[in-house]
């Protein structure tokens, strides 16, 4: 059975590097197609022949559970052949450069490289030098995680019915979060208003200082910053908590986890200041009891599990659009 009602908008795109070069229409098209993919995932036999004969490599230089498996499942449901490659156990250990690895995969006729890399911009290096492969960014350094942002957008749109005009609060270690960067682009482009909150040491210094420095026409001009979470969360439609890595404490960013919990943990009390029915989201993996309280993580507002399911659908939609738009 084929996939029903897919939108063609966005065909012709070769790479997915970040959302900064997506138009709102193109984002909307991905979200529409994701809904069709979600329907496929609900079937008894989750298999459609859309990408039969296409080869996808997941090239992961960093640990990942949900993103890698999500891409693998997305590819397999669409009947693509998916090869998983990780840095350990490959020529990468022999010092093969990222670019050489990319060229090797291209020479093997791979159609799509899904790459995760600890260095910001790594997917751009591949995209610039490979001319017959689509590159999908599955997370690069502190820079971007566009498929996570798309699944966040999809989740919010499905649950709340729209994106435009929503108040989205992203709280935590924004400085080191590639998810936050892509979410910023995504939500801002779709007309939502984003407020960043967290310790001033973990917010990008430019967002703290650049008030008014961005031209009004800039996609991110509407982004607000407020280190006071109680105030920031007031009337929010979506609260996104980011993972706090314990190393941040040693790096001098924080006095202690205890103080972080006291000031920025998303708790039931704080969530009650948001709109009724507001969504609690988290890109995972989650530190329950640190950035979110256990009660909230599993409470009625939590959309965390749904995010994971939607991740597969969104990645199916993207892979489909990339590989069929470039035949």
């Amino acid at each position: 059975m084929p996939v029903g009602n897919l939108t063609a908008n966005g065909a012709g795109r070769r790479h997915v590097l970040d959302l900064d070069d997506f138009s709102p229409q193109e984002i909307a098209a991905v979200l529409d197609n994701s809904r069709a993919m979600r329907e496929v995932l609900g079937r008894d036999i989750k298999k459609v022949p859309a990408l039969r004969g296409r080869v996808i490599v997941t090239l992961f230089y960093e640990a990942s559970t949900r993103t890698r498996i999500s891409f693998e499942e997305a590819g397999k449901v669409l009947s693509a052949d998916v090869i998983n490659m990780s840095a350990s156990g490959s020529s990468v250990e022999k010092g093969e450069s990222l670019l050489d690895t990319g060229l090797t995969l291209q020479a093997m006729g791979i159609n799509v490289i899904v790459i995760r890399h600890p260095h910001s911009g790594a997917p751009y290096l591949l995209a610039r030098h490979l001319d017959r492969v689509s590159v999908v960014n599955a997370g690069d350094g502190l820079h971007a995680h566009p498929t996570q942002a798309l699944l966040d957008l999809y989740t919010v749109r499905e649950k709340l019915g729209k994106l435009e005009g929503l108040k989205v609060v992203i709280v935590g270690d924004v400085l080191h979060s590639r998810v936050a960067r892509s979410d910023l682009w995504g939500f801002a482009k779709m007309g939502a208003k984003v407020t960043l909150s967290g310790p001033a040491t973990l917010l990008p210094p430019e967002f703290l200082r650049c008030k008014g420095r961005l031209p009004e026409s800039h996609a991110l001009a509407s982004v607000q910053v407020d280190t006071d979470l109680d105030r920031a969360i007031d009337g929010a439609d979506v609260v996104m908590a980011l993972r706090l890595q314990s190393e941040r404490q040693d790096g001098g960013y924080l006095p202690s986890l205890r103080e972080y919990v006291r000031r920025w943990q998303v708790t039931e009390g704080r969530l009650s200041r948001a709109r009724p029915g507001a969504l609690l989201m988290h890109p995972g993996p989650m530190n329950e009891g640190i950035e979110v309280s256990a009660a909230v993580a599993h409470g009625d507002n939590s959309a965390i599990q749904e995010q994971v399911t939607n991740g597969v659908a969104v990645r199916m939609a993207l892979l489909y659009q990339l590989t069929t738009g470039n035949t």
């Binding site: 350094g141 820079h143 650049c210």
Partner: peptide, 13 residues
């Protein structure tokens, strides 16, 4: 350099 560009690129300034 630390700044807006570094923030956009996710590079340490």
């Amino acid at each position: 350099a630390e700044g807006w560009t570094a923030t956009l690129l996710g590079l340490t300034g």
